[in-house]
Nucleic acid binder design. Structure first.
Lengths: 162, 162
DNA sequence: CAGTGATCTGCATATTTATGCGTTCAGGAA
DNA sequence: TTCCTGAACGCATAAATATGCAGATCACTG
């Protein structure tokens, strides 16, 4: 027996359907690909929820759903907290895919386009162990004066990963 | 000495500034709040990168940057893989904040509006241990026939968290 | 090199999203 | 009750974003 009593949304006064509607939006969006607010509006209409696009624009903002190439998606809580971290921490978590030492050098791998911002973030720290950085498209070369310094930089970066 | 040789973007032929530009976009966007493509266009112009809004629209898509109330943000790799996970896994990771047992019941806490989709996802599994679910706004009550079943459901949900 | 296909980009415009303002109504306070 | 106040919402439209198409340049290939 599935009880499945969705929506006792009426408990705050039947007038406002906002809470119930937003729940349905979340449900819809996590299940299927919805690529525009107007499409969402039509899907909701099938559930007897009639609202305008304007209202959906407001709902989506409140629910922190963002438009991606694959439709609206929740901006995970993880991604959010990210915004308040120090620049280097953010950059490392966002872009650093791989890290390999080579004598006094450190080779960092990132997704395409990620090298520039990662290198910028490292430069921003002004660590004295860093002689310089060279950033391509998906690779950053960090140059240290000697192996000992390289090891220290490596340790710090690895610490930031989690 | 900071070498900081950004941008040897010319390496594939000077003509295309795409790679370099996208690197700068990433850098800009992770550092400051950019709320529209036109604003981004103006910031880039200060770096001597002159492109139209149309190009930025394409860049942002390629870089998987999404528009949020606080400006454009990277859709973290984490959030992405999420899209391909089973519905219940997604729902749990996205919405489940807290989980507490009470005899044969399980009380799940979610952010506002998250209860409906989470309950729907649980229902979708059609587990025989689940007698039914009741979803409010930020709370789901999962009803099991007895404590043993509740423990099993709890175990499965906890497994999904990570 | 001439030819071919792929990529990048701008332009113009279609499509989509955001928002100022006005209305309605629920929930108090008096 | 009657009068507030604030939330929810639609309407109209402004603002922002996406895209079809065409021109330009590059990377190859023969």
């Amino acid at each position: 027996m599935q009880i499945t009593a969705y929506s006792y949304a009426g408990c705050l006064g039947v007038r406002t359907q906002k809470t119930y509607r937003q729940g349905q939006i979340l449900k819809l969006v996590t299940r299927e690909r919805v690529t525009s607010q107007d499409e969402l509006r039509r899907r909701l209409r099938q559930l007897d929820l009639r609202v305008t696009q304007a209202t959906l624009s407001r709902d989506l903002r409140e629910l922190k759903l963002v438009k991606t190439a694959e439709g609206y998606k929740p901006l995970s809580a993880v991604a959010e907290e990210t915004a308040s971290l120090p620049p280097l921490t953010r950059a490392v978590r966002e872009f650093l895919l791989d890290l390999r030492p080579a004598q006094n050098l450190l080779v960092l791998k990132t997704p395409p386009g990620g090298a520039q911002p990662l290198a910028a973030a490292i430069d921003g720290e002004r660590w004295k162990e860093v002689a310089g950085t060279i950033a391509g498209d998906d690779t950053v070369l960090v140059i240290a004066p000697h192996r000992r310094a390289r090891a220290e930089i490596q340790r710090r970066l690895e610490d930031l990963i989690r």
